[in-house]
Structures are given as C-alpha cells and as structure tokens.
Computed example of a mutant assay.
Amino acid sequence: MAYDVEKTEQEWKAELSREEYQVLRKSGTERPFSSPIETDTTPSVYGCRACGSELFRSDTKFDAHCGWPAFYSPMAEDRVEYIEDRSMFGGVRIEVRCARCGSHLGHVFEGEGFDTPTDQRFCINGVALTQQPD
C-alpha cells in the first residue's frame, strides 16, 4: 500500500529510537505499564510518533488497566487502518496502523464490556504516540 509518508528503512532507523523503530516499523510491543501516557489525564491530542499525524484525543481515552494507553475511537476513521493479524498462535487480532505512514500503533479489541460508547479498546503503544497538550 502506498502511504503519504514513505521512507527507507535506513531513514526510519535514523529518525526513530531503537524502541520506537521496533514498535512502529517492526510491529513490536512495548513492555506493559512502561508508558506514562497510559495514566496521564492531561487533555491532549495524540499523534503518530513516526509522521505526526493526529490520531486520538484524550476525550476518548480511558483507563482499561491493561498496561497500555487505551482509547475507544480514533479522531476519524481515515486516520487509521485495520489489518488482520494472525501472528499470535491460535488467534486473530486486528492491528491498528497509522494511515499516513503505515506505522504499527497497536491493536483494537471489541466486546470486552468496557463502559464506552463504541465497546472498543484501541490498545496503543505509548512509544508510538506523541502527546500534545490541548
């Protein structure tokens, strides 16, 4: 798929930290409970660390007690893309990527019973996000 922001792997490596590169470009996962964004309550806009695209707002963020920042919806559906992820043995998950640069953000889960308007949990790696106070 062609993205608005396309760079070589060498360019991504030069611009991102080792952990950012592993998560954003290699679909890794940061350690649970390692992101200060998870429990931060500052009104903010969260963007893709790789390209800066605005993805989530703090008014859709909630504490899912899962170890990663959780949102119940993106700012707009065209900001993210969804890809079937069969990398986990015995299961299928839905991967969430930035629609502007294709970077891996995390996964979205449905039907977990959270008291949110969408019944979805966008479980997003904090290292994949920038935080801009609103």
Results as ranks from 00 to 15, higher is better:
Asp40Gly: 08
Asp40Leu: 04
Thr41His: 01
Pro43Cys: 04
Pro43Val: 04
Ser44Cys: 06
Ser44Pro: 11
Val45Arg: 06
Val45Trp: 06
Cys48Phe: 11
Arg49His: 04
Ala50Thr: 00
Ala50Arg: 02
Cys51Gln: 07
Cys51Val: 07
Ser53Ile: 10
Glu54Cys: 02
Arg57Pro: 00
Ser58Glu: 09
Thr60His: 09
Phe62Arg: 01
Phe62Gly: 02
Asp63Lys: 01
His65Arg: 13
His65Lys: 15
Gly67Arg: 08
Gly67Gln: 12
Gly67Leu: 06
Pro69Thr: 01
Pro69His: 01
Ala70Met: 02
Ala70Cys: 12
Phe71Met: 06
Phe71Lys: 05
Phe71Gln: 09
Phe71Cys: 03
Tyr72Glu: 09
Ser73Asn: 08
Ser73Asp: 14
Met75Asn: 07
Met75Tyr: 04
Met75Lys: 14
Ala76Asn: 08
Glu77Pro: 00
Asp78Gln: 13
Asp78Trp: 09
Arg79Gln: 07
Val80Met: 09
Val80Gln: 03
Tyr82Ile: 09
Tyr82Trp: 12
Tyr82Met: 09
Ile83Tyr: 05
Glu84Trp: 03
Glu84Ser: 15
Asp85Gly: 11
Asp85Met: 12
Asp85Ile: 13
Arg86Asp: 05
Phe89Glu: 12
Phe89Arg: 08
Gly91Ile: 14
Arg93Glu: 08
Ile94Phe: 04
Ile94Glu: 07
Glu95Cys: 06
Val96Tyr: 06
Arg97Tyr: 14
Arg97His: 14
Ala99Glu: 01
Ala99Asp: 00
Arg100Val: 08
Arg100Gly: 05
Cys101Ile: 07
Gly102Arg: 09
Gly102Asn: 08
Gly102Leu: 10
Leu105Cys: 04
Gly106Asp: 12
Gly106Pro: 04
His107Arg: 15
Phe109Glu: 07
Glu110Pro: 11
Glu110Gln: 15
Glu112Val: 08
Glu112Leu: 09
Gly113Cys: 09
Phe114Trp: 10
Asp115Cys: 05
Asp115Ile: 06
Asp115Thr: 12
Pro117Met: 05
Pro117Asn: 05
Pro117Arg: 07
Asp119Lys: 07
Gln120Thr: 00
Gln120Ile: 00
Gln120Glu: 13
Gln120Cys: 14
Arg121Pro: 11
